[in-house]
Amino acid sequence: MRRLADIDPPHETALEPLASLADGRRGFSGVIAELQDRPAAGGLAAGELERRLLEMGFVEGARVEILHEGFIGRDPICVRLDDMRVALRRRDARGVLVRPDPVRPGPAR
């Protein structure tokens, strides 16, 4: 398993800024750098969404890639999470902060 978050990027001098998984489009990929508890309006106890995400495998160092988007409002999203596939709503993905893979020249994503 690659652990990009743990090692210095060999080629880039500057790291890509962190982006929330909730804002990613189809093809967006990277490594989870930080998981915050950012529940959507109310309902859940503090830390609950974070723990549920953790239990599903959204953990620092895991690779994510947005594979599919829902047909209305691009929501929910289906992500590849390491070697699993997980579906979630964007509003629940807000706390998943991702270090995006550097954009390489080549075929469009």
């Binding site: 959507a40 859940l44 995400l53 599903m56 289906c78 997980v86 579906a87 979630l88």
Partner: peptide, 13 residues
Amino acid sequence: RGAAEPFLMELPT
């Protein structure tokens, strides 16, 4: 009211 359950679901192979 306010009980917004997260939608978090594994898509099995």
